[in-house]
């Protein structure tokens, strides 16, 4: 058993006044020591997939799956206590906007050392030394000074690098990054992604990279799963994304304005109702 994560027939449903709403409809995927991209528009269920794996869907939302295992351990049967231990230690998640995911009334240093000390028995002094080392690894200059800052005193790009440092310090095996750079400027985006990419590769972690940006994902992943209306419509190797077959994937690729290849009109996506009912493509390894 070499896969980090195996998920089969995962569904996430929410009750609404007009009946059940299925945000994720029976998808299957696995994650090896690789970088898996999950791409789709807003509402396609990509974020819900990430949250379901971490057990972050609160009632009345419901998660069902025929199989959901991490290193062979059944996540469906894990107690809330066990899930708390898994989160951070084994699976970490980086959210979209550092403005909302960092605690505004705690210094950066305290937040990072807290993340470490929750999962490992280390002295305050050692935790601090490792936090500084980690900030250095995410290319933050003067880490000692940054440790004493509050989140509002750092820029967006720095905030996101601090989040990455915080999520990676307990050394998890799986990192779920949910739109980690969409709140950042283009010129900072690449830098943050390169740092994340390097750390993930050096540590041999598995990465699930959730984004709406197909081209960005294809550059930083090995495999890409394209989601539409709660299902996976296509899985392909990131390097061969331009050979994608599904009209939805093609539509997404063509709707991006390209600086070097100007067109009079952009291609608007024509949605086919059949895409919604077509069975989910398996992304199992």
């Amino acid at each position: 058993m070499s896969n980090l994560l195996d998920v089969e027939d995962l569904s996430v449903t929410f009750p609404t006044r007009s009946g059940e709403f299925e945000a994720v409809r029976g998808i299957s995927f696995s994650l090896g020591r690789e970088r898996l991209g999950i791409v789709g528009e807003s509402g396609s269920g990509k974020s819900m997939t990430g949250r379901a794996v971490l057990g972050l869907i609160r009632p009345p939302g419901r998660v069902t799956a025929t199989r959901m295992t991490m290193n062979g351990e059944d996540l469906r049967a894990a107690s809330p206590r066990r899930m708390r231990a898994i989160r951070g230690k084994h699976i970490s998640m980086i959210m979209q906007d550092p403005k909302y995911s960092l605690n505004p009334v705690m210094t950066v240093g305290r937040q990072i050392t807290e993340a470490l000390r929750t999962h490992e028995k280390v002295s305050q002094r050692e935790a601090k030394a490792r936090a500084i080392e980690m900030l250095d690894a995410v290319a933050i200059r003067e880490p000692e000074r940054v440790m004493r800052l509050y989140p509002h005193e750092v820029s967006g790009g720095m905030g996101q690098r601090i989040m990455i440092a915080m999520m990676l310090i307990p050394n998890p095996e799986i990192l779920i990054a949910d739109e980690p750079t969409s709140a950042l400027d283009v010129s900072v985006q690449l830098q943050v992604l390169e740092i994340m990419d390097k750390l993930v590769r050096d540590r041999g972690m598995g990465l699930i990279f959730i984004s709406h940006d197909l081209t960005l994902v294809s550059g930083f992943c090995d495999r890409v799963a394209v989601m539409y209306a709660g299902r996976i419509v296509e899985v392909c190797d990131a390097g061969r994304l331009h050979e994608a077959q599904h009209p939805y994937t093609r539509g997404l690729l063509n709707s991006v304005p390209d600086l070097e290849h100007p067109r009079d009109r952009l291609e608007a996506l024509k949605r086919d109702p059949d895409w919604r009912s077509a069975p989910s493509v398996s992304a199992l390894l």
Binding site: S187, Q189, L190, T215, L216, S218, G219, V256, L259, E260
Partner: peptide, 26 residues
């Protein structure tokens, strides 16, 4: 701009990051 003939460093830097993200990072 399409021919990437920017004379200022900052513009070139912006164009470069925009193109790299379109081409997919690598």
């Amino acid at each position: 701009m399409r021919r990437l003939e920017a004379s200022h460093d900052y513009t070139r830097h912006l164009l470069d990051s925009a193109l790299r993200s379109v081409r997919g990072g690598r």
